[in-house]
Every structure is written in C-alpha cells, then in structure tokens.
Design a protein around this nucleic acid. Structure first.
Lengths: 243, 243
DNA sequence: GGGGAGAGATGCCGC
DNA sequence: GCGGCATTTCTCCCC
C-alpha cells in the first residue's frame, strides 16, 4: 500500500503517463453529476492531465476528465483516494480505491500525426475535382467555404446557371443533413437575393424518411462514395508505403 | 521478446483485459483508412474485444476497434505485429511493434452501472413536473415521446389552448436545435392539420445566431438549467450516500 | 474563447 | 437490423 501510494505520487509529480487497475468507486460533479459503485477498472492519467476510467467493456470511458485537470492522491483512513479538478470547467472527480491490481508509469514520446482518408473533406475535394459526380455541367466555385453564409461543402453553378449548394455526408444522410442543407440554401438565397437555389445531398446512401423530406423541399440526392485512397491496402500489405 | 509474445498470446487466448505500452505504427482500413507512424502509445484490448490505442495526449483514442473484433499476434521477422479484424464492419487494423515498454493483463469484474444526473431527459422530466418553467398555464401532455412524428422532449398545450413543442438542450442551444424544433413543429402541424403550433427551446443559453433564427421563425427561447441533483456534493463529500 | 460542424464518432432505445 | 438522437460528446478550424 505504501509502495502504491509512493508510485502514484511520483508519477503524478513527474507528469508521467500513469496507468493502473483498481477496484474503485467514482463520483463526478461538473457539467453533469455521476456516481459509479465499486468495480474493477483501468485508470489512465496522461501527461496532459487527461484522466480516463475504463470498465472491461465498451469503447467509451465510463468517467473522464479532460486535459488540464490536476490530480492529487490522498490516504483517507487507509484507503487511497484520487481527487481531480479542472478549474477550466469547474469539474471535480473523486476515485475511492479499495484495491490496486497493478500500477505502471512512464513517459511516452509520440510526435506522429494520424493520416486519415475517406473523410467528408475528401469527398468534397473529389467532387471539386470531378464535378460531374453531381451533375453534367456542374461548375464548382468553392469547397469547404467558411463564409458568413456558413460552412458549405461545395458550392457552384449547374448547367442552367442556377446556384447549387452541395452537402456531403461520408455515411448515410439523415434528417439533420437535410435540415443543414436547407439552412445553407436559405442563407444563400437571402444573402444573394435569389429565389432559386438548388440543394444537393451527396452521400453513399440516405434514409428513406430523410429522402422523403428532401424531395418535399425540392432538393436532390446524389449517390457518392467517399474516396478510398487505400482500397488496395487490405489486399496487399506491401503497399503501406503508398500512404 | 519471447516472453512478451507468450504473455500477449496467453492474455488474448484467455480473453483477459490486456494493456501494454509500445513503440509502434498503426494501419487501419475499414469505414475509412488511416496510418500512424512510429511512436510510444498505450494499447488496451478489453474482454469484449474492444481495442483502444492512446497517444500521450488527448481524451480520444487515436485508433480503435469496436467490441467483437478478433486479435492475433504474429512474429514477422523479429517484430511483433497485432492484426485485428471485425467481420461485422469489414474492418482491419495492424499494429507493428518495435519495442514493448510493459505488459499487464488481468480479468476485471465490474457489475456496476453509471448513475448520471443532469441530462436532457432530466430536464424534460423537470419541466413535466414544473410546467410553469415554460410558461404560466402550460399543460404538458407527454414527455420523451417516441412517435412517428419524432422524438419530442415535452409537448402540451399553452394557456391559449395552442399546441406547444418543447425541445430541451442541456447545454447552449445552436442552429441544429432550432432546425430540430422546426422539424417537429412542421410534422405536428401536418399530422394534426393545424396551422398554429408553438415551438420553444428550453436550455441554459442559446447562441446569438441561433436565437436570431429562432425569432425569425416565430419560436421562443426559455432559459432553463438542467437539474443538478448533486449540487451539494462539491460542498460536502459526506453526502455521497445520498446518491 | 465562442461558433459551427465533422467524427472510422459511441451509446441508447424503440420499432 | 435501421432510425433517430443525446453525449460530462471530443476535436478541429475559423472568427
């Protein structure tokens, strides 16, 4: 126990990455409030102050504190208790520990950034380069435009000279996508004083209900798959260098 | 090295929770594609097959596989390589390991469920119990109603007998909240053949732009804080038992 | 720091 | 399974 206490304190002081497993209970108060009774969990405190509590199942942490939090270890009547505070968001967490299964700590060095392909931005780039994916004669003017009209994926003129707003979704488009498109179309109409602006959702699929709503409002759906730059990877691992 | 290989293989076979730190690179192909160059990371494989890769900074994993994935360890020319597959989503991940810093594995027992207060549902319950939070004379009919019209937080009649749709947000309301409210109001109007249905956003705050859009569409904003059942907790830790 | 929107979002619940 | 939506969403980017 004494050793555990020293080990955790040393890691926190040195701002190492600390990972341990413990039977513990957790109370949180901040943006919401939560309590979790005693059970075995993995707890990770990163070098930036991020704290994650993971149960043995599921992808998401059951409790967490964002980076910048400060952590303190106390010994309360023989039990170790970790308190974490984030002044930024007025958050507070308390981990009451019954038993520790293991403790590890070390400093991790990682300078790399994730390369990611197949995002919505990759879709809008692809459409900009291949406008016929939307319609014959489509002439894009801009992509990923952050203007006062909003953040519009692709925006241009169709064959008839009408303005077209294209909203891309990398997955199935839903009600929210239709609402978003409508919001952009209305803003463009108002800003440019136009009565006729086309709206297109470009996505691999669209839910039936969303498509009904889309048609009712006079917009169109165009099936477009997000580009898969590494399609060949699964077949040939030697192509990793292509990235 | 031989020991590391055995240790990881034993843990995977036994479906223990496995956590190790390694200098590694990561390739992913599935819903998208990604590549991450060599760096020090924490890797966690849970009892349900969830795999998480964490860098030393940030709350979110840089790479992951959802529960149900299967993991295999290979020795490729002296380097350990973990391959993970999820047949459900046709996903594939490959972790190439240069050096392992530590390995731990164990079986975690956790039966507890998180108790959480201060959610949007708590807000709609509170409004249902205290209708005057919306307006004097408001009479709620239902809460959290999952109908074919959609998922409506609170819905009832105002003092004048008009139908009212209330959309709650636990944080600042934004454009999306206004669009959502509008969608519900339109659907109710259509379904009931009404020309006049009120719409209210109940939230602690609303962004200035969203409020402008809200007013333009004839809806109202009502300031409501999500209920904080554990308000007292931060002041008096002895009250933990109240939960 | 706020606003706006994407995410390999995840997770929950209802049909 | 899909659909619809909340999330202590997190993260990024722009103003």
């Amino acid at each position: 126990m004494q050793t555990d206490e020293l080990r955790i304190n040393d890691a926190l002081r040195a701002k190492e990455t600390l990972i341990f497993s413990a039977n513990c209970s957790i109370a949180y108060n901040g943006r919401a409030q939560s309590y979790l009774g005693f059970g075995d969990r993995l707890i990770m405190i990163k070098q930036d102050g991020t704290l994650l509590v993971h149960t043995p199942f599921g992808a998401s942490p059951v409790n967490y504190m964002k980076g910048g939090a400060t952590h303190r270890l106390k010994n309360v009547g023989g039990h170790l208790v970790i308190t974490s505070r984030s002044s930024a968001q007025k958050e507070f967490m308390e981990i009451t520990i019954r038993r520790i299964h293991f403790i590890e700590s070390l400093t991790l060095l990682d300078q790399e950034k994730l390369l990611l392909a197949g995002t919505e931005k990759d879709m809008s780039d692809m459409i900009f380069e291949n406008p016929s994916l939307i319609s014959p004669g489509f002439r894009p003017l801009s992509r990923e435009e952050h203007t006062k009209f909003g953040f519009i994926d692709v925006f241009g003129y169709d064959r008839d000279g009408d303005l077209v707003v294209v909203e891309c979704k990398r997955d199935k488009a839903d009600f929210a996508a239709v609402s978003q498109l409508e919001r952009y179309v209305h803003r463009i109409k108002k800003a440019k004083g136009l009565s006729k602006v086309q709206g297109v959702i470009a996505a691999p699929t669209i839910s039936a209900n969303a498509e009904t709503m889309l048609r009712e409002k006079g917009y169109a759906f165009k099936r477009v798959e997000p580009p898969r730059f590494l399609e060949q990877y699964g077949k040939s691992q030697s192509r990793l260098g292509d990235f």
